Structure formats: C-alpha cells, structure tokens
Simulated assay, not measured.
Amino acid sequence: MLIRTLCCALALSVTSAQALQTGQLPERRLRELSATLADTAGNSHWQQLWKRSRDAGYFRTDGTQARFTLPMTSIPDRVRETLSQADSVTPEQPTLALYRRDFAPQVTGVEGAQNLTAICLRVDWRSVPDEPQPEQLFGASLLLTYPCR
C-alpha cells in the first residue's frame, strides 16, 4: 500500500511538472487539443461537467444568474460543438483555457433580462503533458459550461 501511494505521489508530481501550460501554446494548438478531446472524452468527463455546471446554477429555470434556456436535450451537442469548434480560446491561469462558441441568432441562455447566444466551456489541462498523444487527453478536466456573451 505504501509503495502504491508513493508511486501515485511521484506520478502526480511528474505530471504537474509537465502540465500543459495554456498560455505558452498558440490558439491553433489549443483548438486541436480540444477537438481531439471532444472526440475522446469519456462519460466520466461529461458527467463531472454536468454536475459542476448544475451545482453552479446554470441549469436553473429561474433567477438572474446566467442560465441555459436551450432544451436540455440539445445542450450536450452544443457544448460538444463548443469544445470541437470553438470560435475563440482564451488561456487562463497556467493550465486553464476558456473555449467560446457563438450560436447567434439562436439564444442559448439568459442573464437577468439579457439574451445570451454563446456557450463557454472551461477546460483544465493540468494533468495533460506538454506534448500529449490523443490517449493522454484523459487527464483533461471539463470544468464548467455556461451560456455567455
């Protein structure tokens, strides 16, 4: 048990030392990685995303916070499209990236009385090495999705 714990700790320290630094990559490369992730993300990636986004209130039916107004059945496809074909990518912190896709004229959500037409998706690439192979993208985390401007 102790050996397994030490091995896991070592693997985590090596991974974090080689974490994908989003601010050091061209937007083109961040788009390529997200398109591959859209095709390879497993059910657990998506389940965690839905849980975090629901917990943050983005699926509520009322209130002034930003929230989706799309039919629940269409949100997964739109979010996957945001990940695979983002209009823009903004690096955040060392390993985060914000992917945004505008679906105008379709309204994706509201914030207060304002209609929103885009979807934002925050991805954490911390557990992905600098030059990942497609099978190494399992370490990426789909953190949060929400309707945005």
Rank of each mutant, 00 (worst) to 15 (best):
Q136V: 15
A113W: 12
T95N: 11
D39Q: 09
I3Y: 05
A97T: 12
C7T: 05
L25G: 00
G139T: 14
L12V: 08
V107I: 13
L12K: 10
R67D: 01
L144A: 09
C8F: 03
V79K: 07
T82Q: 01
Y146T: 15
M72F: 11
P91H: 05
I119S: 03
E92N: 08
T64V: 10
Q18E: 08
Q85C: 13
P94A: 12
A66Y: 06
P26W: 04
L2P: 03
M72V: 12
A17P: 07
R60E: 14
V110N: 09
A9G: 11
D55K: 05
T40F: 05
Q47I: 10
T95W: 06
C8D: 07
G23Q: 03
G57H: 08
R100W: 01
L20V: 07
G63C: 01
Q48F: 02
A38V: 11
Q106H: 13
R101W: 11
P129S: 13
A118Y: 03
W50N: 00
V14E: 14
L2H: 11
H45N: 06
E27F: 04
L96V: 05
P91E: 08
L70N: 08
Q48E: 01
E81F: 04
A140H: 02
L25C: 01
V107D: 04
E92P: 03
R149S: 10
Q85F: 14
L6G: 10
T117E: 02
V123K: 00
L30V: 01
L30K: 00
A38Y: 09
I119C: 05
M72W: 11
T108Y: 13
E32L: 10
M1T: 14
G42M: 04
W50M: 00
Q133R: 13
Q93V: 04
T5W: 03
V89R: 00
Q93K: 07
L49E: 00
F59W: 08
R122Y: 01
T5N: 06
L96G: 01
D39R: 04
I75H: 04
D62V: 14
R122H: 02
W50E: 00
L96N: 03
G57K: 05
L142Q: 02
E92V: 09
P94V: 07
S88T: 15
Q133T: 15
W125Y: 11
E111G: 12
A17M: 14
S84D: 09
R101S: 14
V89W: 00
